[in-house]
Amino acid sequence: MRFVFTLLLLLFINVIIVKAQHAQISFIPKWQNQVLELGKYYPLSSIDSVKVDVVKFYITNISFWKQGKQVYASPIKYHLIDLENNTVIKLNLPSKLSYDTIQFFIGTDSVANSTGAKAGDLDPMYGMYWAWQSGYINVKIEGSSSVCKTRKNAFQYHLGGYLSPNQTLQQLAFANTSNNINIAILIDSILQHHTLINTTEVMSPSVHAVKYMQQFKQSFQLVR
C-alpha cells in the first residue's frame, strides 16, 4: 500500500516537473543607462544631486498572449517588488506554452482594494496600504535631493487610488517570446530636475498620483 502511494506521489511530482517551464521577470532600475543603486547620489544638474532610498511597487495579473488571445494567466496575482531586496518574479508556466506578448499591470485592482484584509504580498504590514483611508499604495518612491526645499530635502511619492476619477492602475504589454524577461525602469525619466522642484510629496489619490503613475509606466522598457 505504502509503496503504491509513494509511486503515485513520485509520478505526480514528475508530471508537474516535466510539464512546467520556468520564466522570470527581472526589474532593473536605471539612472542614465547605469544600474541605479539605492542610497547613492546621482547628478541631477551641474550643481544638484538626487538620492533614491525606496522604490516599491506592485506588479499584478501577469498574463501571456498569442496573436491577440490570452494563452495563460499566472495564478499568483499580486507581487510586491522592492528594489532593496526583491526584484525578480519567478513563474512556472505550462510546458510548450508559446506566446508573443506578456502583459501585466502596475498597481492593484479594485478587488484587492475593497474586499478586506489580504495575505501574502498584499498584507498591509508591508507598509503599502494607507491607514487613514482605504487603498493600496501602488508605487512608493522616496529619497532626497538638494533641490527639494523640504525637511531633510526629502521627497515622497506614494501613488495610489482605485476609485474614479483617480484610478492609478496601469496596464503594460511587451512583445516578447523569451522566458527570461528583463525590464529596465528609467528612474531618471521620473525624477527630473523640474519635477523635484515642483512636487516633493504625493500622498493621496489625486490627479497628480495618476500623472506620476503614467510616468512610472512609461519608464518601463524591455531590455532585449
Partner: peptide, 10 residues
C-alpha cells in the same frame, strides 16, 4: 474613509 471592517483598525 475606510471601506471594509477588516481595514478599520489600521
Amino acid at each position: 474613509a475606510i471601506n471594509h471592517l477588516d481595514m478599520q483598525a489600521l
